[in-house]
Amino acid sequence: MEKIIEEALSGHVGETGGLITGLRHVQERCGFVPRDTVRIAADLFNISQAEVRGVISFYADFRDEKPGENHIRLCVAEACQSVGSRQIERELTDKYSIAMGETSASGEVTIEPVFCLGLCSCAPAAEVNGKLISRASAKRITNEVGG
């Protein structure tokens, strides 16, 4: 793991905004940002561990634990609210018995809120395992998880 983190980060030292790009690559490789990243990044970028931790905690994209097998991101912003995203949120959290931002006990599903996917003209919008869905419903989303 240590080697993977180092590899993902090292190419971005000295780059503009390199720490953020590096952390994204760590997450792409590991599925999340492991705790050891703080120490390794601090050494590589020659900054304090506090600064690295500060960056990781500031940005919503960075996760500190592995997500479920299926990753649902449901848009919860105004345009999606206007066509029923709150109802979809209720249906999904009921179905998987979790709150937004959590992973189901079986590890099958993680549901996260997202503030706008830029699909506001054909809302509600969601993203399941990287696939964009417009005119979403709880059924369409769970079908995507199943398939």
């Binding site: 503009t16 905004g17 953020i20 790009t21 952390l23 994204r24 500031f58 940005y59 919503a60 994209d61 960075f62 503030f115």
Partner: peptide, 10 residues
Amino acid sequence: LTVFVGAGAY
């Protein structure tokens, strides 16, 4: 010119 991708912060 370079594209820099953010990390989820309004």
